[in-house]
Design a protein around this nucleic acid. Structure first.
Length: 859
RNA sequence: GCGGGCGUGGCGAAACUGGUAGACGCAACGGACUUAAAAUCCGUAGGGCCGAGAGGUCCGUGCCGGUUCGACCCCGGCCGCCCGCACCA
């Protein structure tokens, strides 16, 4: 019997699918549609195991839905702009464009090797001028809608990548790609008004019921909506210049206003700067504040520091009280108004500050049951529920009504309004880089910033950019930026900033509906295909890509270009592929291929294959070149075939969890592939329908059960469980071999194999085709319908019920499926073995759960 | 500090709606085949105790308690780990 040979079969079937154009997505109003999308890859040039997992997961869904009769869209593209290409250009002197397209070509081959059911006719890269030209088109539309603006602002500057970063791209004070400490710089910057959508972006999270809770919560926290009161304190005495209208603060606790003992402003607040202009001590204080780091440890341990400006403000509700104005290091300029009032009794930070500078601490919220005469606050602020006291017109109110009353009073006094404040900032989208989508505007001495007319699109990148040195290649190109002003016809310069690559990935899913459309989005096609029914990718994009894409979708919907307001109806975040790490005695990382592992009982040891030096086996960690614990997919395909690799990354762990790659594991999957093939080969051709006997009936029932189980497992993303059922079923087939089988068993086997071939299709598609052909399946398996099951046949005719006595298993009985409790009870009590167990005991109660279990309560 | 998640054999895990805990796989061990090894195939397997054996028996899903005829699952309280956010007023 010939061993299954993936090197022969796998390319053959891929060729067959391509020839038949099996995966072309077609708008078919007669069928329900299903759009499966995995986050598109950055074309680094090499496929890694994370890709294998991501795209295999999506392919399972795509193939399954296809077999279930859906009209499936499953496209692929490339997130192709960005810094790695420029870095490669600098390091190796290559052209970023050529480098990128070379990488795409290589990765396309590798992805195609995976046997994915992708409609390759829709492929595009974001660096195709046909794509980014369309992006410029809708950018201008958003510009016209006032969603794009330019202003000077303090921005995050990555000194290594030499570009501006969005807040979302700064992690722990460092650039998300470079890891360099981010500097604050004042620059003219382009922004997208994502804050206009902050409310919707929060509210609509509730509609995303097929998103992981975790991601929704992360987005909600990131947007950080808070409701409170914005109001201005009037200055007592003459107001500083520019503060005639008072000093505006934001609070979520207007109910505690009578507990206020100071007002604090951020070190970079305009008033602080004004004070510093006249006071060298203030200058020094502000400098000290700015020196404090932004890291977690520094914030946790940072002491509260303050500087009394000497100004005093009037308490809004008490004409007899004034409050001092301090500059404080714990107040942030970029949240709220950059100024607060401090209520030490009910806010820990304010309390720490007040204790340090001996400011009054007046409790105004009385905890339930506390005595108003004796309640005091020591070193811990009280933030719990209670009743307001020491607060004039608010006395006796609970917190929420007191907030409302305080806001109403402030509004009546004309000093402020109830306000919603967000943590979310507008999205800074300009990057000072040459390898990106040019922002389609010009700068004219006469007309200022002028958006280009659509007729001037696309604004294409020049082919002769010079990337050999740091900085913006577009800006230093000798001729590209010089143009004429569309308004006055005079000389003008093009904007040389390009768009953040997250803009590129904020609408690609919509472009896939029709990638050749003359407009950015073919509305008719998008109306058919969108939203994406199942989106699959890593959790790392929870607040970056996924938030931006939601925003752009809403903005384009408001512009009439899209009908959906949410791009991704279902989101699945898959775990990483990890691998054990190995280190030599000197700490050097060692690649898995150089290590030999031996086991003695339960102890595993590792040595270098060359030289035998002992190696330390470390934790399983995300595959990374730096730790040398990567495994190249291509090498695995070469040895075990693509199907075995796909099967293993899907079988070992639930998809949302990390999965540990191991050679032994993929070997096990490969063994399964071979055993499946042997089973199909052993089946004689032409097994005809025949009568039933016990063995064939049991096999038929098991087949129906298998179909049910695998179907449900795929629908609920429990691929590992579904695959376990397939392994189990293969064991059952081997226990009912073709050799020596009765005609009826052979016929049951034939039906079982037919179902089995289709059930393994989503996981091991090449093998499935080969098996389908072997048992005489009509046409290609990929065109076959998903097998159906008969619910009645998923149950065995006779059930073995465990029998418990007082909750402990004491035996079992056989009963017909669906037997009534009374019937089962009689069977149990007639059973001699059970009777023996009950000797000397009085039966108090017999609980029979139909088809499940019997429990006898006895004493 | 706030929020989310997780805790089950040597390992990855499974267990439907509260109903036989550990399916399936990896590693291991025993056997067959082989001159030998690899590969492959067959078998064993949570732990303790009793028994020559068939088998019996007790313990067991992070810990303590509760609800229930019955708890990995529900409730209360703790412990540990992972992830996200964080001086956000």
């Amino acid at each position: 019997m010939a061993r299954y040979n993936p090197k022969e079969t796998e390319p053959k079937w891929r060729q067959a699918w391509a020839s038949a154009d099996s995966f072309r997505a077609v708008m078919d109003p007669a069928r329900p549609k299903y759009y499966v999308l995995e986050m598109f890859p950055y074309p680094s040039g090499r496929l890694h195991m994370g890709h294998v997992r991501n795209y295999s997961l999506g392919d399972v869904i795509a193939r399954f839905k296809r077999a279930r009769g859906f009209s499936v869209l499953h496209p692929m593209g490339w997130d192709a702009f960005g810094l790695p290409a420029e870095n490669a250009a600098m390091e190796r002197g290559v052209d970023p464009k050529a480098w990128t397209y070379d990488n795409i070509a290589r990765m396309r081959d590798e992805l195609k090797e995976l046997g994915l059911s992708i409609d390759w006719s829709r492929e595009f890269a974001t660096c195709d001028v046909a794509y980014y030209g369309q992006q410029q088109s809708w950018f201008l539309d958003l510009f016209a809608r006032g969603l794009v603006y330019r202003r000077e602002g303090i921005v995050n500057w990555d000194p290594v990548d030499m570009t501006v970063l969005a807040n979302e791209q700064v992690v722990d004070g460092r650039g998300w790609r470079s890891g360099a400490e981010v500097e604050k710089r004042k620059l003219n910057q382009w922004f997208l008004r994502i804050t206009d959508y902050a409310d919707q972006l929060t509210d609509d999270l509730a509609t995303l019921d097929r998103w992981p809770e975790k991601v929704r919560v992360m987005q909600e926290n990131w947007i950080g909506r808070s409701k409170g009161l914005k109001f201005a304190f009037e200055f007592a005495g003459s107001a500083p210049a520019g503060f005639g209208a008072g000093l505006e603060v934001y609070t979520t606790r207007p109910d505690t206003l009578f507990g206020a003992s100071f007002v604090a402003i951020a070190a970079d607040h305009p008033l602080a700067e004004q004070v510093a202009a006249k006071d060298s001590a203030a200058v020094k204080f502000i400098a000290d504040c700015k020196r404090g780091g932004a890291s977690q440890a520094e914030i946790d341990t940072a002491e509260k520091m303050g500087f009394d400006t000497g100004f005093r403000v009037q308490h809004p509700f008490d004409a007899d009280r004034t409050l001092p104005v301090w500059i404080a290091n714990f107040v942030l300029m970029d949240y709220g108004t950059g100024a607060i009032f401090g209520c030490p009794a009910h806010d820990q930070r304010d309390l720490d500050f007040a204790r340090k500078y001996a400011l009054p601490v007046t409790p105004v919220v009385l905890p339930p049951g506390a005595d108003p005469a004796s309640f005091t606050v020591g070193t811990e602020a009280y933030t719990g529920p209670g009743t307001i006291f020491h607060s004039d017109f608010l006395d006796g109110l609970e917190i929420e009504p007191a907030k409302a009353a305080a806001i109403a009073r402030i509004e009546a006094q004309g000093q402020g309004d109830g306000a919603t404040v967000f943590r979310l900032r507008d999205w800074g989208v300009a990057r000072q880089r040459g390898w990106g989508c040019p922002i389609p505007v010009v700068h004219c001495d006469k007309d200022g910033v002028v958006p280009l007319p659509k007729s001037a699109l696309p604004v294409a990148l020049p082919d002769d950019l010079e990337f050999g040195k740091p900085g913006n290649a577009l800006d230093r190109h000798p001729t590209w930026k010089h143009t004429t002003c569309p308004a006055c016809g005079g000389p003008a310069t093009r904007e040389t900033d390009t768009l953040d690559t997250f803009v590129d990935s904020s609408w690609y899913f919509a472009r896939f509906a029709n990638p050749d459309a003359p407009d950015p989005i073919d509305k008719q096609a998008a109306d058919y295909w969108l939203p994406v029914d199942q989106y699959i990718g890593g959790i790392e994009h929870a607040v970056l890509h996924l938030l931006y894409a939601r925003f752009i979708t809403k903005a384009l919907a408001d512009d009439g270009q899209l009908s959906v307001r949410e791009p991704f109806a279902g989101l699945f975040t898959q775990g990483m592929v990890t691998h054990e790490t190995y280190r030599r005695q000197n700490g050097e990382w060692v690649e898995p291929g150089a290590v030999e592992i031996t086991t003695e009982g339960e102890t595993r040891r590792a040595v270098l294959i060359e030289g035998g030096e002992p190696v330390v086996i470390g934790d399983s960690e995300k595959m990374a070149k730096s730790k040398k614990n990567t495994v190249a997919p291509g090498e695995i395909f070469e040895v075990y075939g693509v199907d075995a690799a796909r099967l293993f990354v899907l079988s070992d762990s639930p998809p949302e969890r990390d999965t540990q790659w191991s050679t032994a594991g993929v070997h096990g999957a490969w063994r399964f592939v071979n055993r499946v093939w042997e089973e199909f080969e052993s089946q004689p051709t032409g097994a005809a329908p025949a009568g039933d006997d016990e063995a064939s009936t049991a096999l038929r029932r098991a087949t129906h059960r298998l179909v049910k189980q695998v179907t449900e497992a795929i629908e609920s993303f429990r691929f590992n469980s579904g695959i376990a059922r397939l392994y189990e079923f293969l064991n059952l087939l081997k226990a009912n071999p073709a050799a020596g089988a009765t005609p009826s068993l052979l016929a049951a086997r034939q039906d079982a194999l037919s179902a089995f071939a289709r059930l393994i299709g989503p996981f091991t598609p090449h093998l499935a085709e080969e098996c389908w052909g072997r048992i005489g399946g009509a046409g290609m398996m990929v065109e076959a319908e998903w097998p159906a099951f008969d619910a009645a046949l998923t149950q065995d005719a006779v059930k073995v019920l465990p029998v418990q006595v007082n909750g402990k298993r004491r035996g079992e009985i056989s009963a017909p499926a669906g037997a009534e409790p009374a019937e089962v009870e009689k069977l149990v009590l007639d059973d001699p073995e059970i009777a023996r167990r009950l000797e000397g005991l009085t039966i108090r109660k017999v609980i029979v759960v139909k088809d499940r279990i019997v429990n006898i309560v006895a004493a």
